[in-house]
């Protein structure tokens, strides 16, 4: 198992580098990072443009630039952005923010998914089941920024009016000049996290809850659960001790895999709620044809996807007794 995981990891990393080559040459061949400088009024002196070109290294052939980049990346140095600032600084700062949002929303959707999944599985074809199934699909079918606009109006502005102070924020990852103690800071973070977390969790929990529901049904139909019930175990006990705990195994795997997807999919949510995080970084990088920024984003996101895929593999092997046998 471990050998397989390691082999798979190495292959994934190679694939990631192949991808970086593709992206690198696409970005550099289609975008001119200096065009904006040329379109300014008063006109920027040609000498300045030339100097900038050399600073960025545009005077060197792309292959050479790529190799230099790849050499640095191996040492975890993502180079400089177009303005000459180290990409690493920006990257880690923004990664922290994105992780904050993604982890919070994964936790929330996990809780929602398990709760709803169990409820609809134990009351299959009941009104409750239909209600949750329907609302799950409803959120799944919503454009996230549409939902976000509703949340801003009804969950934030109206709520704040009701309590008379700003508790829930609509924009940013924290208040500007936040200068509070640890708990004050956490409270402020939480106030900014609420809307994006809800938005992200609502649109993604449905898939997991369906999954949870189905695996619950499977488990509940299995012989050993039937046996437990025949032996007189109470219903709640059967549901939780036997049903839930076995049905959670496949869900855990799925969640691990999807973590990467949620991470990449948070872009719109970040944008809507004004989070200067990873998604925004990518959008700005693409806008400016800042290849180092784009690649840094891709490498980090790619590595996270790969790592969580591996975790999924490992979890699957460790958690599922049938595999262990």
């Amino acid at each position: 198992m471990l050998g397989f995981v390691i082999r798979r990891f190495i292959v994934s990393i190679i694939v990631l580098f192949v991808a970086s080559v593709l992206i690198y040459f696409t970005v550099t061949s289609f975008g001119d990072p200096l065009a904006e400088l040329r379109s300014r009024n008063p006109p920027v002196p040609e000498a300045v443009i030339e100097q900038r070109r050399q600073e960025i290294g545009l005077d060197k052939p792309p292959v050479e630039r790529y190799l230099a980049w790849a050499g640095d990346v191996v040492t975890l140095d993502f180079g400089d952005d177009l303005r000459g600032n180290p990409v690493n600084e920006v990257l880690w700062r923004r990664l922290g923010r994105t992780l904050r949002m993604v982890i919070a929303s994964v936790v929330l959707s996990l809780v929602l998914a398990v709760g709803v999944g169990v409820l609809s599985a134990t009351r299959q074809y009941s009104k409750t089941d239909y209600f949750f199934t329907f609302s799950g699909f409803l959120f799944l079918s919503m454009p996230v920024f549409w939902l976000a606009a509703l949340l801003k109006e009804f969950a934030a502005i109206r709520f704040n009016e009701l309590v008379g102070r700003t508790v829930i924020y609509t924009t940013g990852s924290e208040s500007p000049r936040l200068d509070a103690d640890f708990w004050g800071r956490m409270a402020n973070y939480a106030g900014h996290l609420i809307l994006p977390t809800i938005a992200l969790a609502l649109i993604s929990y449905a898939a997991w809850s369906r999954y949870q529901r189905n695996s619950m049904l499977d488990v509940m139909e299995s012989d050993y659960v039937k046996l437990a019930r025949a032996k007189g175990a109470g219903r709640p006990r059967v549901v939780f001790r036997h049903g839930l705990r076995n049905a959670l195994i496949p869900l855990t795997t799925i969640v691990a895999i999807d973590f990467g997807a949620v991470f990449g999919g948070a872009i719109i949510t970040e944008q809507v709620f004004g989070w200067s995080a990873m998604g925004n970084l990518l959008i700005e990088g693409l806008r400016d044809y800042d290849v180092n920024i784009v690649l840094a984003w891709m490498m980090v996101t790619g590595v996270i996807v790969i790592i969580f895929n591996l975790i999924a593999d490992l979890l699957y092997g460790v958690l599922d007794p049938r595999i262990r046998q």
């Binding site: 606009a149 801003k152 109006e153 934030a156 502005i157 704040n160 700003t166 924020y169 609509t170 924009t171 940013g172 990852s173 208040s175 500007p176 000049r177 944008q271 809507v272 709620f273 004004g274 989070w275 200067s276």
Partner: peptide, 21 residues
């Protein structure tokens, strides 16, 4: 005067109404 860089155009009306800017 706090200059905020993290509010985009689309989010302005809500942020203004919500007292964030």
């Amino acid at each position: 005067i706090v200059i905020r860089f993290d509010v985009d155009n689309a989010g302005l009306p809500a942020a203004l109404e919500n007292g964030e800017i």
